[in-house]
């Protein structure tokens, strides 16, 4: 097989990988914020539910979660296609780690900020969204960036439930051609470039967001 052909097949796979990331990332962020906030502020029964979700998804393995959703849910009469299973499993998995990012960042905002916002008589939701969250967001960016990279890496697991992502195409090519070194070399490079792109994007976002905080003053 010509090298150009290999790359073009792999590119098709890369598109699928990017699609999954693009769908699972918003789900992960949504889960991270909603359950992170529930964990911090909601009354007891909701808090317990959040803890179960977080501990379950962090305590078991992503691949098992993916298999469970894809192979076991049909037994309960819930049949979902491979793509949905992939997005749900990865979104919930990365999201469970994200809850701790949200919680940690909110808790790292100095206590004096809460006190000042009480003294100025802000309501509790104004306190959270106008005073605490803008400061916590800046702290969240680097760990969320790392989670985004973990998500990109975790998408490779979907190849095991027959989704034609980058890893799947690579394995398919490797089984049919003999150019395994080239194939996997290119694939690794693809993933690496995606991760570096994320790193670049996250750094930009961080500089942009911390601008108001006066030369990264929050971290000083």
């Amino acid at each position: 097989m010509e090298f150009g052909e290999i790359v073009s097949v792999l590119l098709q796979g890369a598109v699928v990988t990017i699609q999954i990331v693009a769908m699972a990332l918003p789900l992960a962020v949504l889960m991270a914020f909603s359950f992170g906030l529930i964990r911090l502020y909601a009354p007891a029964p909701f808090k317990q539910i959040a803890i179960v979700y977080i501990e379950f998804f962090r305590g078991t393995s992503a691949l098992i979660q993916l298999y469970w959703i894809y192979f076991v849910l049909p037994f309960f009469g819930i049949t979902i296609d491979a793509m949905t299973a992939a997005v749900v499993a990865l979104g919930l998995n990365i999201g469970s780690y994200g809850t701790e990012v949200v919680r940690g960042a909110i808790q790292s905002v100095p206590k004096g900020q809460y006190e000042a916002s009480i003294a100025l008589n802000f309501t509790s939701s104004q306190r959270l969204w106008r005073i605490i969250m803008p400061q916590a967001l800046v702290n969240m960016i680097p760990p969320f960036g790392n989670l985004a990279i973990e998500l990109v890496k975790a998408t490779s697991l979907v190849s095991l439930i027959t989704i034609g992502d980058l890893t799947f195409k690579a394995k398919m090519l490797a089984d049919t051609t003999l150019q395994v070194g080239e194939i996997f070399g290119v694939v690794l490079l693809f993933y690496f470039v995606m991760a570096q792109f994320l790193v670049f994007f996250i750094r930009r976002l961080e500089t942009h967001l911390s601008k108001g905080l006066g030369r990264g003053g929050l971290h000083s």
């Binding site: 004096g112 900020q113 006190e115 003294a119 100025l120 008589n121 104004q126 106008r130 929050l218």
Partner: peptide, 26 residues
């Protein structure tokens, strides 16, 4: 109203926003 030992200004707001935010929102 209270003034704090460690100021507790909101670092993500300009000086003016620090002063106007509460009157406007509250």
């Amino acid at each position: 109203g209270m003034v704090f030992q460690h100021f507790n200004l909101f670092p993500h707001m300009t000086v003016k926003r620090n002063i106007t935010e509460a009157p406007m929102r509250v």
